[in-house]
Amino acid sequence: MIRRGKGVGCMWYPIGFTVAANPSAATVKVNEDGTATLLTGTVETGQGSLTVLAQIAAEELGVSTDDIHVVSADTDTTPMDTGAIASRTTYVTGNAIKLAAENAKKILFEVAAPLLDVQPNQLEAVDRKIQVQYFPQRCLPIADVALQAQFVMGRPPIGSASYNPPTVGMDPETGQGKPFSTYVYATQCAEVEVDDETGEVDVIYMSAAHDCGTAINPMLVEGQIEGGISMGIGFALQEEMLFDDKGRQLNPNLTNYIMPTSLDMPEIDVDIVENFDPTGPFGAKGVGEPTAVPTAAAICNAIFDAVGVRITSLPATAEKVLRAIKEKNNSEQKFIPAAE
């Protein structure tokens, strides 16, 4: 019989470790046509980080994301970055880029201020213009200011900065400290169908609510969450590296290392729970790895809800689930003592 069950998994996840050095550096230069070039050492692995980082630089400089030319991941020429690891890119690299853009903007403001007859701190950068706060009609195109800065004032608008999450050492006595800069939280719910005669589990629905600070690019956040859920489903039900006693992998290929296909994916609803983190760039934290954390827990809880068995080692293959169901049935069998 097919039995349905629902389960919940919750998690928190640290962003920006501080127990070791964890720096990112960046350089932003504003060009004389009003575009900007961003140099960063981080690596795009498909998660869309370069888009998000360009958005951060663009927001700070008051230009469009299309105006930002990103040069990345070349250790010869780009500033040092700890790497596309630990769900840190938006937070740590993003902070470095925001600071670098701020430094470049400061030069633009200092050059524009006398031309607009104000103090630099009365200016703001929006819509590709440097304008006087509250008096948007008193403005100059960023391109003109950048040109002026370079060729008249001799001060090319360029900014460099680095960010290393502030460190608080662990107290050896109490073990207390601040090992991470900030945290994200998430809850995922799974609905499964379990066949109690075969042990087969089918995830039919997942909903995922994730806090990632400000979602700088909600579409990419959704993509990350859906991808994380597919990894979580593989972790929960299918994927397992098998080794022989000499340590050789028995399933080193996709024929028998089974990962989810389009048919294994349930309907997914993603809910981005926005929340401003004052330490992140424009309030952002991160989303990468956390997306795969609560999935397996939610699915295993749903299996328990459906058939009343706890699977405590992953993956919860049909064999394991069926064995657990049988054990449970056996232990619940009532023995009626024979009449004396």
Binding site: G223, E226, G227, G228, I229, S230, T261, S262, L263, M265
Partner: peptide
């Protein structure tokens, strides 16, 4: 979904 089930993707969850 059926027609694409022979195309694996590690990143996106196919959604």
């Amino acid at each position: 979904k059926d027609a694409l089930s022979g195309n694996l993707c590690r990143c996106t969850g196919y959604t």
